[in-house]
Design a protein around this nucleic acid. Sequence first.
DNA 1: CTTGACTCCGTATCGTGGTACGGGGTTTAC
DNA 2: GTAAACCCCGTACCACGATACGGAGTCAAG
Lengths: 134, 134
Amino acid sequence: MMTIGQLAEQAGVNIETVRYYERRGLLLEPARTESGYRQYEPAAVARLRFIRRAKALGFTLHEIEELLRLRVRNAAACQAVGRRTREKLELVRRKIRELQAMERSLGSLAAACESRQRTTECPILHALEGTDDA
Amino acid sequence: MMTIGQLAEQAGVNIETVRYYERRGLLLEPARTESGYRQYEPAAVARLRFIRRAKALGFTLHEIEELLRLRVRNAAACQAVGRRTREKLELVRRKIRELQAMERSLGSLAAACESRQRTTECPILHALEGTDDA
DNA sequence: CTTGACTCCGTATCGTGGTACGGGGTTTAC
DNA sequence: GTAAACCCCGTACCACGATACGGAGTCAAG
């Protein structure tokens, strides 16, 4: 068991952020001491880190909430969450594909720079301005 | 040549957003009619779409500004932008790796759901709560 | 030639994801 | 037993990325 300060420290976030996530429902309300201090189990660190990583990947807090709900309900209603999981998976794969396109563009730009080819047109645009599915 | 409304329509963004990007310096200031109306060339659509896609990939407007600058200055000072390009490339590759980790996690979760294995512990956490390099 | 849609600009407001503040009670360390 | 450090809660404020508003001018169709 640890205090909110220790939790925040270990997870690498601000104390206020912990309380904010609690308000948002991303963190379960922890046990309290008699005087009202929050008491966290080690699992809370893992949960906070999960949130941090997901956030770094571009998920909104709302989406992260959904991911966390998948986890919570997994044991109980496994197949019921399959659809949402596959939706997220598709989203992630789309992001990967687009980033790979950008990677190729940046890569060829870097290569062109290296060989001092001074192409008049930057390759980055070609790959990224192209088709737009919206 | 087109008006701001036509541009916004074609690029799939709000008119106000176009003006906002102009203020931010993401869009070059367009020509004006005598009466002061903005006049855009077709290239502006491509530029707006580029911004949209980059944003969807998790780049901030500031980073997008930098990406756009790479493009602009490429012809003139090619090797000078090489370093910044490679930095962006590393950023993109890191994002891809993290998304791929999440893809694996979600994939195994989906598979577990499908086979109704109702594992008591959700695989998604294992891969994502694990090591944390910060 | 007027009516409605479009544009101008400046400024205000919004949603998201926090972060800070401040007045109070609590714990820990000396 | 008293500082220092910590925690409580509510509320205020911040940056970012838009989006809305409003009063005025402009343009295109009937």
